[in-house]
């Protein structure tokens, strides 16, 4: 009998510090498997965010830098431009990317930087204890919206993928989910494409992954998955919002 599954070699042996069931852990595995499969471990650079994934550099066995809150896309821009042979990815949560870092992600996409961005949307600030994020659903409870997000007071969630897809220089934008084995397999395909695009010189590639934060939602991981499927996907439909991959491969 043979093992048909293994820990990707682009992960260190360190135990993830994430909470039980957290979507970050699943996405770390997917990204590491993609790095293994594309054989880019020696060239990959992770830009870790501020948020629960702040220690991503402990887990990815690749070069790394941890940036100020929300500035990942700007840092990734600098690394990629200075060292074009590196394969640079910015890994960010929704507080990091869509609140304090909104300017950086929009402008990196507008400039069409040839970088890969992995965006974990769990509708909340995880690390700091469950404050409302721009992605928090209307009616969803957060410590800063104890009665639930009120459209009249706090407005509506920002659908980052749809928004970035409007920018001419963004090349590949997809939203996937980490809620089930089939969706996780699809998520990996999207992540692989977002890295392959960088290798092919396609340009700005962005994958949003819907994830659970059971701890700050105050539910069990299994209940969290139900919330993701029933509530989150209604606000954040899965799918490809933009794909100019073929048209933009270098040399075409």
């Amino acid at each position: 009998m043979n093992a048909i599954t293994k820990r990707p070699s682009s992960l260190t042996q360190a135990q993830f510090h994430y909470c039980p069931g957290c979507g970050h852990s699943v996405v770390h595995r997917l990204v590491a498997e993609v790095i293994d499969e594309l054989n880019i471990k020696d060239r990959a650079v992770v830009v870790a965010p501020v948020g629960c994934a702040v220690f991503a550099d402990k887990y990815f066995d690749v070069d790394s830098i941890q940036g100020p809150h929300g500035r990942g896309p700007a840092i990734a821009t600098g690394i990629k431009r200075a060292k074009p042979e590196s394969i640079v990815f910015s890994y960010q949560g929704d507080g990091d990317l869509a609140s304090i870092g909104m300017a950086e992600i929009v402008h990196a996409a507008a400039r069409g930087e040839n970088i890969t961005v992995i965006f974990i949307n769990n509708t909340i600030y995880g690390m700091t204890g469950g404050q409302m994020a721009p992605t928090t659903l209307v009616g969803q409870v957060a410590t800063t919206a104890p009665k639930g997000r009120n459209e009249k007071l706090q407005g509506n969630p920002i659908n980052v993928s749809e928004m970035l897809a409007q920018l001419k220089s963004a090349k590949y934008i997809e939203r996937v989910s980490s809620d089930s084995a089939p969706n996780i397999i699809k998520a990996k395909k999207a992540i692989k494409k977002a890295f392959q695009n960088q290798l092919d010189g396609v340009g700005f590639s962005f994958v949003e992954v819907l994830s659970i934060c059971p701890t700050n939602w105050g539910v069990t991981p299994l209940k969290g998955l139900e919330f993701l499927r029933e509530k989150m996907i209604a606000q954040y439909p899965l799918g490809v919002f933009k794909d100019l991959t073929v048209a933009n491969k270098e040399g075409k």
Partner: peptide, 19 residues
Amino acid sequence: IGCGMCFQVCPDIAITVFR
């Protein structure tokens, strides 16, 4: 049945599937 679904969803890569 060795389908590997549990491996896919396991956040902590705690499961090894043998076939």
